[in-house]
Design a protein around this nucleic acid. Structure first.
Lengths: 386, 386
DNA sequence: ATCGCGTATGTAACCGTTTACATTGCAAAG
DNA sequence: CTTTGCAATGTAAACGGTTACATACGCGAT
């Protein structure tokens, strides 16, 4: 009845082998046959999981290189249940901020033998969910950077078994590790510094309303004013979106004010550069008439005109730490489940606030209150290629 | 003799099922059992590969969502031989240039249902090779951006069956598709413009010696001088590395010259910004005393002081095109094997060269010689988050 | 000689899918 | 009533590894 006779058990293997040879990759069976050993032995040689006699090993190794064998990742992870890949979910990738994060993660990931599956540009929670779902089974763990959605909102789509580390996200009560930079403390320190310089009328250019980092920076700004016992009318706020243009718009609005502030603090460097651009266009001298400060210390900040005072984040370290936590969690040491780690910041005072120092001077004493955790943040930024 | 009795054929499946239930993910078998159908039917419902009766389908779908089933990617790609993932190999990730490339690739990749596996920071060819090897079996194709290694050098580690697209790489004779931006034509057009403004003594700040983009830009610069019948002594070259600091160093060297050039062309914007910084420090007025131009049109260029004239690359489009080519190659339409596609550039003339225009004015007529291929490059750069 | 044991290697189950082919049921055609 | 064909579903091989267990072998102790 059968139209095609089923391959008899004996012929089956031979058929397999022949078929595999036509496919793209060399299989472990071909290597085994060529070396005159079993697949188990080849596997042992390739993975070094057991002792193999020297001559056998040499023979296998020779065939491996001759045939250019490379184990099929899918087959391997199917049985081992590990992919050696971690996922990185970003809201979007702009400019230097995100590339530094990816860079930090990628560098340490490769060192640890992991690959990195990125996914960016998630405008909303639904999309983030979607990505998280399709990543399932492709990754051993995920680093999620979601300034708009709190961990709680993403809870549903996270298999409870999947290790996750959140980066700069709103505290969401989820039982996951979370790292963030000390946005609030950094902003507090910078505003305190400006107040220390004698400024009493400030302007603050905010980030996007829904962004958690932005919200924290605003909080830090208000903290400092409160500590100095200044009323909320000491600062006027202008809404920005973290882009240069919004900084420019805010700067233009500020110069039109009847009583101008004497200092402007922008929630990130890009906007601060937009502010500088607007002030220059209006003929306002910085820092003599108005001081300007930013946040992030992107590489270009030193080269602004005048060089921009800012709050330095060691973003690369953030990525590295995130990976370290994730790997710890993957290897099951995730006992310390809901860890929250805060990375410290440093004030970098340059000419835009009238601090005529060159670079990297540590902030005033109160910056010490920022965080206990000390991390080697002396990495020199180098950039070399196009 | 056997210490443990082998599971009889009949009990095997039951054992399997039970074991699977303990593991992390829900398997297709559990769904099948719950819905009272076979695994084949579940597969058909999930993939929509065959007609299934309505009531059966509804039952299966219900169980899928109830159990939160998501197909195991490894198992699937083992049998289908497709991973729905593409690899991106970058020399390193700095600043806005690379994040734009990744962004362009990632956006179109996700739209096409693909994931992106990135790997950056490959200082040398050996490392690139290594990465390419371990990516094998994890990706359906690779986009390689390797300004230092020519495709020929990577030939050895590329399985001939793996679709590959090179980005901005030296021409290597390899039978692979290659895209690049018109570095040479762009540089030629900018220098021609400077000459058209009357400049006769130029300085050119080069990129890293081993970088192909940098070499092309230098060639374009020389082309323009030759066309204008000016001797090679009309331009003095200063070596840079694409970082701001090297631009600053070059700028400082230039102002120390006994006879200064009247225009400086830097091989990228970062260095041009370093040059501007140096000139400002030395009290040299731009563009009155010296004109300055860059290459790339990174977002910050408009906000430089003065706003920087530059050559705009639509980097995101580059990424998109690369992905499109790769997908074509993956789906077997790679008949046009050794395609070389050149993306056009545009001159963006701002104040740093004395062109008082705002933004995005198209270059002089000769820019038309740059390339025939016209691509919608009117995308407005927007940046919103931290 | 036999036994026991350790070492090196082989055999085949198993991972979770997809899919070719088999099977079943039912309606229309003969 | 039997045959034929089609539609819906089931069965099990196959993907390419890893690894538990089986086996073969050599060697010293009994």
């Amino acid at each position: 009845m059968t139209r095609r006779p089923r391959t008899a058990p004996g012929t089956r293997k031979a058929g397999r082998r022949a078929a595999a040879a036509t496919a793209a990759g060399v299989t472990i069976r071909e290597v085994a046959q060529a070396a005159g050993v079993s697949v188990a032995t080849v596997s042992r040689v390739v993975n070094g999981t057991a002792v193999v006699r020297d001559d056998t090993r040499h023979r296998v190794e020779a065939e491996v290189t001759r045939l250019g064998y490379s184990p099929n990742a899918a087959a391997r992870s199917l049985i081992t249940n590990r992919t050696n890949t971690i996922g990185v979910v970003l809201p979007d990738i702009w400019g230097e901020y995100f590339s530094e994060v990816i860079r930090g993660i990628d560098l340490s990931a490769r060192q640890a033998g992991y690959h990195v599956l990125v996914s960016s540009s998630h405008s909303d929670v639904a999309e983030t969910r979607d990505v998280l779902r399709t990543m399932h089974g492709r990754v051993d763990g995920v680093i999620v950077m979601s300034p708009h959605a709190s961990p709680r909102e993403l809870q549903g789509c996270l298999p409870p078994s999947l290790p996750v580390v959140f980066l700069n996200s709103a505290p969401g009560g989820a039982p996951h590790a979370a790292l963030h930079v000390d946005n609030r403390g950094g902003a507090r320190a910078m505003v305190a510094h400006l107040l220390g310089l004698g400024h009493r009328r400030l302007a603050f250019v905010t980030g996007p309303a829904s962004n958690f980092d932005a919200a924290e920076r605003r909080r830090g700004c208000r903290d400092a004013l409160r500590t100095a016992r200044l009323g909320p009318d000491a600062v006027s706020e202008f809404e920005g979106d973290f882009g240069e243009e919004s900084g420019q718009v805010a700067g233009e609005a500020i110069v039109r004010l009847e009583t101008r502030p004497t200092a402007i603090f922008a929630a990130n460097d890009s906007m601060a550069i937009g502010v500088l651009f607007a002030l220059r266009g209006a003929g306002v001298r910085v820092p003599e008439e108005i001081a300007v400060a930013g946040f992030d210390d992107i590489p270009i900040a030193r080269f602004a005109s005048p060089p921009l005072s800012t709050v330095r984040l060691d973003i690369r370290t953030l990525g590295e730490r995130a990976l370290a936590r994730l790997l710890a969690e993957i290897s099951g040491e995730g006992a310390s489940q809901a860890v929250r780690e805060v990375l410290p910041i440093r004030l970098v005072l340059r000419e835009s606030t009238g601090d005529r120092d060159g670079d990297a001077r540590t902030g005033p004493p109160r910056a010490a209150s920022v965080s206990q955790i000390v991390i080697n943040s002396s990495t020199v930024r180098r950039r070399k290629a196009s």
